[in-house]
Write a protein that binds this DNA or RNA. Structure first.
Length: 278
DNA sequence: ACTATTTCCTGGATGC
DNA sequence: TGCATCCAGGAAATAG
């Protein structure tokens, strides 16, 4: 479940490995429901393009491309184009040697001038691939890291939905998923079922601080390696060792020893300490 | 305009 | 051992 910290880690890993490299050709699997743009358009946009920069926006990986103008020998920044990848649940962008065995569920392979390949692999096929040209790509909600404190409360206060659901709503904040929503709510001592509108100003501030803290720590740890997540170089993260509630149903709360509870909110499992969180 | 529920998808875990 | 069933969840689609 790549969320913001995992996507950030993957984007940084890609930036280190492939920035400046040129995509020479692209192979796309047939019969592909992961494509938000037509396969031909993706191939046309990627082939011959130089990878300028790889970065994260929400849970999206945005790859800025410099396309070669037809006939010209050099790369020019215009027309501006971007390759946008969403990892979904089990998506992976991996850089490897062209000779490496192609994993099952490989949906796209970009052959690089350096002799390596950038591959998109996604067993569960919840990922999404698209190319954007013209207007730059925009994530649906606002960026959680460094969000304005006052704007943060204003975003959630009108919502009647449980705060947990609101945190998962990417149109509000872009990047938080199930793990980091649960971990943030624990640190803020707020129960996931509380209606967003019921939170006090102080609680919103605690939640804001908790989100900043959890995301920063998780990025520093290289993300959480759950269900085989690894970054673009194949390195695992280790923030899963620091989860205080996620995946700890029945285990003692690390603060008060009360067994951690798991409930389902909006179809998602939510973990919390019934004593620490109000 | 909101909010809640269903759907997509496959590997791994569980149960008999 | 083998086969069926359940479960995980991001976000779009659908329903209310």
């Amino acid at each position: 479940m790549p969320e913001l910290p995992e996507v950030e880690t993957t984007a940084r890993s890609l930036q280190r490995q492939v920035a400046g490299d040129v995509i020479e050709s692209v192979w796309i699997a047939n019969k592909n429901n992961l494509l938000k743009s037509p396969a031909e358009e993706i191939a046309r946009t990627l082939e011959g393009a130089r990878i300028e920069c790889v970065r994260r926006m929400g849970k999206h990986i945005v790859i800025d491309l410099a396309r070669r103008r037809a006939g010209a020998g050099c790369h020019v920044p215009a027309p501006q184009a971007q390759w946008v990848v969403h990892l979904g649940m089990t998506g992976r962008l991996l850089v490897c040697d062209a000779a490496a065995v192609r994993a099952k569920h490989t949906h796209l392979v970009a052959q690089l001038a350096s002799g390596r390949e950038l591959r998109f692999i996604d067993p569960r096929r919840f990922g999404k691939l698209q190319v954007v040209s013209g207007a730059p790509f925009r994530a649906p909600g606002s960026e959680p890291i460094g969000a304005d404190r006052a704007a943060f409360a204003k975003l959630f206060k009108p919502r009647q939905t449980p705060i947990k659901s609101a945190l998962l709503n990417q149109k509000l904040l872009s990047g938080i998923g199930n793990i980091y929503a649960d971990e943030s709510l624990f640190r803020a001592a707020i129960r996931p079922r509380r209606r967003a509108a019921s939170l006090t100003r102080a609680e919103f501030m605690r939640l804001y601080d908790a989100i900043q803290q959890v995301l920063a720590e998780a990025i520093a740890a290289g993300g959480s390696s759950i269900s085989d997540y690894v970054d673009a170089a194949g390195a695992a993260g280790f923030f899963q060792l620091h989860h205080r509630v996620y995946g700890r149903e029945g285990q003692p709360c690390l603060v008060c020893k009360t067994p951690i509870k798991r409930v389902v909110i909006a179809g998602r499992s939510s973990h919390y300490c019934p004593r620490c969180q109000k």
